[in-house]
Structures are given as structure tokens and as C-alpha cells.
Design a protein around this nucleic acid. Sequence first.
RNA 1: GGCGCCUUGGCGGAGUGGCUACGCAGCGGCCUGCAAAGCCGUUUACACCAGUUCGAUUCUGGUAGGCGCCUCCA
Length: 467
Amino acid sequence: MREVRIRDTLTGEVRTLEDEEVGIYACGPTVYSRIHIGNARPFVVFSLFARFLRSEGYRPKLVVNVTDINDKIYVAAREAGKGSEEFAEEMTAAYIEDTDRLGVGRPDSEPLASETVEGIVSLIAELVEAGHAYESGGDVYYRVRSFDDYGKLSNRRPEDMDQGEDAGSASLKEDRLDFALWKAHKPDEDTSWDSPWGPGRPAWHIECSVMAEQELGAAFAIHGGGSDLVFPHHENEIAQSEGAGRPFAQLWMHNGMIETGAAKMSKSEGNIFQLSTALDTYGREAVVAYLISGHYRQPLAFGEEQMEEAVARVERLRNFFRENPLVQTAGQAPGEGSAGKQRGGPGDPSPGARIEAFREALADDFNTPRALAEVFELVGEANRGEVPKAEAGGVVAEMLELVGLSTLTQPEKGAESDERALELMQEREAARAAKEFARADELRDELAGMGWTVRDSADGPSLVPKT
RNA sequence: GGCGCCUUGGCGGAGUGGCUACGCAGCGGCCUGCAAAGCCGUUUACACCAGUUCGAUUCUGGUAGGCGCCUCCA
């Protein structure tokens, strides 16, 4: 089990995970629309990070919530002409479907805000009791200035906060900095829950404080999410939990935004690209490969060119396994047995050194681009014959498994089921043997039209899906 | 205005006080009947100005430009 270091947003420092138990709470979506590729980044990053930790012998528990009570859901449901609960259920199902298609597995737990209301009410009651919150007109607000540490995560002081609220509107708040914990039921909202302050519903930030503790206990290891959540969302979570005297996350891990052009992808910018569309267009491997092509903390450029590059690099890996099929040893998973066979030093082109460097890159603030460079280095070494291909293949498979790309190692169900294509291929082979190249090329074009690329090799021709 | 981040070759994107990241694309070549795949070579990058240093893309200061958050947002 190696030392794993992560950059902490709160302290700005790189910190080492101290405990084998690693509770990770990563903020999931508010289900008011289909998710876009930007929303997929934290899903993939935290899933793969947890997978890596597990492979190192840690015991991670990844919790990704679904916020299914929210102003936007009421609005969107009304527009869709549906009940808000029905709408939220549909969108949750769509979210599950879309993220399932990424093929990186499900989080260990995916709590719903709507199933956490009881805990939410009791946390709010505690905050009221402690003087950190107050009821006003059926709403309950958090008294920001009562919490001394407010602003510690986003490094801002309450007095510096430029409030964007309209000065004219009559507010129920004592202070414009205060934020809602509970919102009184409004006539146009079709759901509400009972509370000591009357019927209403949870406001935005409170559910995470409750779900994180319910799922992971107090003082859990890592809280993650997009960098756009640092303020106010995560700042407010800290105020809620720590204000109630409950130790909260020990380390904060934020992923950068995906950008189109020079602006971040967001629904309000109107520059979104839906995850399902990306999956349809480029395939899951390319989408995953794209999402880990940059360091998680940095912004990542999105565009057709970037996605096509991802398709190409994934194809390069796939080609490697087309030419070097994994040898399945009985009772051994692909790649197993090569781990730990470390030898040589840095620069040693042995597969053992490559997997070591790969894992070390991931242990160093989850540096996926550096890890992927090791994958490509090793593939290149094997293609050049500098290392035994079978051994390299096993190691590359192990690497790809860790980053959610193990399907690249598996032969695709392909030509063998397409009898017509196989016939044409044999026909072309016969034409080539007879030196009827015009006829052979004609057949190749025909196969291309059917979606197949012909590859001739010393072992004879083969068909691979056209990209 | 406040806080934080960024500026690397055609594009994406790592990283380091001195040595080829990696990938994609382009160009030339090898292989091939021609291709595809693979391989080799190639255009020798670190915004700008100072400073520290034997030496800076990498540290310090400044300049210019850009981004994020401060309102819903992964």
C-alpha cells in the first residue's frame, strides 16, 4: 500500500492519506435535466480514484448524492407538465442510465435528498438550538456571522462578500449573507414536508451535510466536487456541520471545469454537450479517456478536436490488443501477476518499472495524464519489440483496468459474426493471390462501406471495425 | 471591487533548476501490390520584462492577457 497524496483545497497543501478507511463524499447532480459531459468529470474522477485506492489496499467508500429536491426541479417539472416527484424520478433514472454507460461502476452509496428529510430537519433544529440558525416567516436561515470559520474554505471574509441581491426586495433574513436551510412551502410547489417551522422543504446545501455524515460518519476523509461548488455550497456545508459541533471533511478535493472555447461548460452559458450525446458520438472509452486526459484539478478544453483525439488514442490502445491478444492464464485475471514484479530503476523500460511509475503517478495527487503517458510508453516499447509483448500486454491491461478502460483489451465481437463480410474478405484474398488487384480493391471498398477495415498481415487478413 | 487559478511546440496536455513527457494532427520515409496497423525521422515549445543562480520553461518581483467563484452551476 503506497502513500497517497492529494492537494487539499482548504489548506492548499498536498496531504497524505493517513487512514486505510477513506470515506469520500462527492457532490452529485441536482436532477433537473440530463447531465452534460462536465458533470461526468467528477463522477469519473472520483470513481476511478476510489478504484485506485482499493487496488492499493485502502478501503474507500464513495458516496455520491442525488439532490432531488430543489427550486429548479419545481420549475423544470412545471415546464414539462409533470409532478415534481415524477420528474425528479425520471431525471434520476436518466442520470443513472447515462453514468452507467460510462462503465466505471456505481458509487458505493447514492443517497437521495428526498429520503434524508428527517435528518435534515433534525440538523436544522440543532442549528437553531445552537443559535446558528433562526426561523423567519416559515423559512429557516443560517446566521452566517455566528460561525467564526465562515469563509475558511474559499478564503474569503464575510465583509468582502459582494452581495448580488436586489437591495429593494424585502428579505426575511437578518443579514444578507445568511442563507436558507429550510424554505416554507409555496402554493405552486407540489411537495412539502412537515417541520417544526411548518410545511416546507430543505434548501440547497443542507442535504449534503446530513447525507455525508449519515453515510460516512463525522470527520470523514475526503469531500469532493467541482471547483464551482467551493463557494457557496461547500462553504455552507462546513458552516452547517461544524456549526452543529460535528467534525466534517478532513480534506477537500475539487475538480476543474470543462471549458468550451474560453468559457466553462454550464447550463446557464448554454454551451452544454450532453453526456449521452458524447457517448453516442464517440463511444464510452473515448469519453473516459478524454475525461482523464488532463489533471483532475485543471480546467479541460472540450471540443470536437479533443474528442476525436480521444477516439484516436483509444484506437491506438485497441490496436495493440488486436495484434497482441491477451493470453488468458487459468485462474488469473488479465494483468494479474505482473504487479509488484518491480525491478530496475527509473528509465528502465521494463513493464515492471512502467506499472510502478503508473501507480506512483496516481498516488501523486491522482495524476492521470502522467499515468497515461506510462501506458503509451509501454505500448510503444512493446510495438518496437523492446519488451516481450505478452508481458507488456498483461501490464497494460492492468493499467487500463485501473482507469476504467479495460474493455479496450477485449476483442470486439466483430467480423466472425458477419458472414457476408468474411466471404468478401476471402474473395478479396483470392483476388490478391491471383494478382487481380483492381478486384481486390473493389472488395475492400465494399467492406469499408459495410463498416470494416481490412488489415493484411503475415497471418492473413483480418477485419476491424472502421473508426 | 474581493478571493483563487492559469498562460508550454499546429492542437490537447504533463513536468522539471541543467537531460525526449505523452497523445493527436502535419510532413518525409520503412513495411505493403496499394492500403490499414506498426515502426523511423521531422517542424527543436515553455506569454513579456527584470532579478536570484554557474545555469530558469521550472524560483522571486513586475507587465500583458485569459479563466473561475463571489447568483443557480460538476
